Simulated assay, not measured.
Amino acid sequence: MQLNTIQPAAGAKHAKRRVGRGIGSGLGKTAGRGHKGQKSRAGGYHKVGFEGGQMPLQRRLPKRGFKSASLKFNAEVNLDDLQALVADEIDLMTLKAVGLVPELTKNAKVILSGSISRKITLKGVGATAGAKAAIEAAGGSVA
C-alpha cells in the first residue's frame, strides 16, 4: 500500500446534486421543483402538519392522557424479590447491583406483593403501609 493508491470505499463518495445547470444535467429549468405553487418558490414552505389552512389533524383531535416525566426515575420492588435477595441490609445501590431496578432509578418503593419471612433492613428505600407492616412482622425494619 502506498499513499498515492489509497481510495475511499466504493460508493462512499458520490457527486453532489447540481440543480438548475441546463437540460443535459436532467435537473435544468425547474430544477426538480415541478411547476408553480408554494413549494416551487424560494422561501416558500410551511410548517409540519400544515393542511393549507384547514384545521390540522393534531388540532382537530382532543388532547388526551398524560405521562409523567419523572416516571423513569421511580421503581417498584415486590416483597418476593426482597425474599430472594441474600443481603440483609437493602438500599438503592443493592437493588441496582442485582438488577431489580434500572440504573436510572432515583427512588424505589417496596410494595405489598408476595410475602416475606426473613428479617431485612431497608435503608433509603420507601415502602407502602402494607409492605412496611409485613417487613416489621417478619422482624425487619424500614429506616
Rank of each mutant, 00 (worst) to 15 (best):
R41L: 14
S68D: 15
G37Q: 12
V19E: 08
G140I: 07
E51Q: 15
P8Y: 08
M1R: 08
T121S: 14
G44Q: 11
L61H: 02
D80K: 02
P8T: 09
G130K: 15
G65Q: 05
G32T: 10
P56G: 03
A97W: 00
E51C: 06
R18F: 01
V48E: 08
P102T: 02
M93W: 06
T128K: 01
G44N: 07
G139Q: 03
I111W: 03
A129K: 15
K119A: 12
K106E: 14
S115P: 00
S25Y: 02
G11F: 01
G34H: 09
G139H: 05
R21I: 10
F66N: 11
V48A: 14
Q2T: 13
E89T: 13
K39M: 13
K16C: 09
K132L: 05
S141C: 04
R33V: 07
P102H: 03
R33K: 15
A9K: 11
G53N: 09
E76H: 11
V98N: 01
V101H: 11
Q38F: 09
L79M: 00
G52D: 04
V98D: 02
K67W: 08
G11N: 09
A138W: 00
E76A: 13
L3N: 13
T94F: 00
A10V: 12
Q2R: 14
L71Q: 12
